[in-house]
Nucleic acid binder design. Structure first.
Lengths: 135, 135
DNA sequence: ATGTATGCAAAACATTTGCACCTGG
DNA sequence: CCAGGTGCAAATGTTTTGCATACAT
């Protein structure tokens, strides 16, 4: 994810956008909230407003370079979408996020959508619990 | 769900609580937002504050008599939890909510949780799309 | 009687928007 | 140059909280 990737989706290459991409790539667990990103930028001495972060992430989501995850506790985090589709395990204590893929679940989801006559636009599957380090 | 059910979970039997239970039971699709419930109560001539609805629903969720669903668009709705576990199909256009059960998906979820060493506390599975009447 | 529940208004939060200024191509 | 991007502050929408009053047991 670099300047070229931004151009190829029709977005101008600006400093905030590059910085936000960089943070999403280099952050420890690759799942960052707006607040996380804001604090990181401030620590790096950048002058950004949260509004910009919201706008940039929304645009990134629209062009498909990030995914937004909305957890039950109300927190939202973003991840780069340069990997294959996956779902998430979320530790309710330490906040760790694991990713998993299960083809059978995917297939059954599609069967259900078809059975009920829906035209799928999105889905969300989160499993919440205590991770192995937290229980 | 009646006065006796409230007593049995240790909650005082009050008018707002009974009214809210009644609304959840008798509402068309059994999935109501705080706003929906508030408007219904006002139309019935009841004097309630939204704060009470939030507090009551939170308590109901804590004792397990309602489930809270958090959709990606930020909307939250509540349903009585007196039926078997199920997941949800949500129409992104008309807001219709269908419920489904898939044992294979449930089993795979448990397998994944075990594989990653988590102790499950909750999960959420929503499938979003256009329902058969909306495409 | 007494501890809990309620209504109201204010506060808290997260997110969005309006607008003047700045910047990338 | 100029359309689009940005920072700031104000506005929004939703949920929570403080407090005096009302109610269930």
């Amino acid at each position: 994810m670099d300047a070229q990737d931004l151009k190829s989706v029709g977005l101008k290459v600006t400093l905030p956008r590059l910085k936000i991409l960089e943070i999403l790539e280099t952050s420890e667990n690759h799942h960052m909230s707006v607040e996380d990103i804001y604090r990181t930028l401030i620590m790096q001495g950048e002058e950004v407003g949260v509004a910009t972060i919201y706008r940039v992430l929304t645009q990134f989501e629209e062009v498909g370079i990030v995914n937004k995850l909305n957890f039950d506790n109300g927190q939202s985090v973003f991840e780069l979408s340069n990997t294959d589709h996956h779902d998430h395990l979320v530790c309710v204590k330490c906040g760790k996020i694991d990713e998993f893929v299960d083809e059978i679940i995917e297939k059954h989801q599609h069967d259900i959508v078809k059975k009920y006559g829906y035209q799928l636009t999105g889905h969300c599957l989160y499993l919440y619990g205590f991770c192995k380090n937290c229980h």
